[in-house]
Amino acid sequence: MASIDGPRLSPRSGVAKQLVVFLHGLGADGNDLIELGEQWRAWLPDAAFVAPHAPDPCSNVPMGREWFPLTLTDPREFWRGVTYAGPGLDAFIDQELARHDLPPSRLALVGFSQGAMMALHVGLRRPTPPAAILGYSGLLVLEDGEGPEGLMALRRTAPPILLIHGDRDDVVPVEMFFFSKEALGAAEIPCQWHISPGLGHGIDGEGLRQGGLFLTQSFGLPSPEKT
């Protein structure tokens, strides 16, 4: 598996106290999500942002990248994919934390679609839970043949999780959001959630606002809407 890298935004304050890692969807690259960091910098002035490009070229999008191939013809490809891409992403996260001399507890993972699958898979398995996992239009991937009880076996503490999904998503149907939310609950990992009415496979303004507020709360910062 190739090493990964991608665009970065330095903390607005000049000193990193948190790290936010963006994980893009299938067929995109890190440039697709780093703009979210621009939107949230005023609320998270001490956060360093990085959006790594997934390791492999996307077979369906000539200029895009993928964390793992998806044909949607084999239900086992999800688990096979996240376990394939997980170690490389985990190593990248550790390198970025070391780059900023930050402890693992000051990490937030933000993923969209396939990137949300990666954020949930890796974030729930790190030795030190992240401060936050934010998943847009994604899916919690369970081990082949296993139910939520498999998550309970590895659970140390439950990191704050927010799932956001459009109710008109025709790529990752909203039913997958309900499956993920219920599976997390069954594994005793509570999550917050928001459904964006009328939204397809994307992130709208309200989802962006909810995500930014969730990150500030998870990092123990004052609500920007009260200042």
Score class of each variant (00 low, 15 high):
Val122Pro: 04
Leu33Val: 07
Thr216Arg: 04
Leu36Asp: 03
Phe177Tyr: 15
Ile133Ser: 08
Gln192Pro: 06
Leu97Ile: 10
Thr216Trp: 07
Gly220His: 07
Ile133Gly: 03
Pro75Lys: 08
Gly205Met: 06
Leu213Trp: 01
Asp32Ala: 05
Ser223Cys: 15
Asp94Cys: 03
Glu77His: 02
Lys181Ser: 05
Ile203Phe: 01
Lys226Gln: 15
Asp101Cys: 01
Ile203Tyr: 06
Val50Pro: 01
Pro222Phe: 01
Asp46Cys: 09
Ala16Tyr: 12
Pro130Gly: 01
Trp67Leu: 02
Ile164Glu: 06
Leu199Lys: 14
Lys17Val: 06
Ser10Val: 11
Leu140Ile: 03
Cys191Asn: 03
Gly123Pro: 08
Arg125Gly: 09
Met118Gly: 03
Arg99Gln: 13
Val15Asn: 12
Pro57Cys: 11
Arg155Gly: 05
Leu89Thr: 06
Ile189Val: 14
Ile4Val: 12
Asp32Met: 04
Gly27Val: 04
Phe219Cys: 11
Gly205Ser: 13
Gly14His: 12
Arg76Glu: 14
Gln114Tyr: 06
Leu89Cys: 03
Ala51Ser: 15
Asn31Phe: 09
Leu9Asn: 11
Ala51Phe: 11
Val21Asp: 04
Ser10Glu: 13
Cys58Ile: 07
Asp170Asn: 14
His201Ala: 00
Met118Thr: 07
Gly111Val: 05
Thr128Ser: 14
Leu142Arg: 03
Ala2Phe: 10
His121Ser: 06
Gly25Lys: 00
Pro62Ser: 13
Ala42Pro: 02
Asp94Ser: 14
Leu134Thr: 08
Val141Ser: 00
Ser105Asn: 12
Ile203Asn: 00
Leu142Trp: 03
Val110Ser: 01
Gln114Trp: 07
Pro87Arg: 12
Gly198Lys: 08
Ser180Asn: 00
Gly115Pro: 05
Glu149Trp: 12
Glu225Gly: 05
Leu221Met: 06
Arg12Asp: 11
Glu38Tyr: 08
Pro55Tyr: 06
Arg41Ala: 15
Trp193Arg: 10
Gly27Met: 02
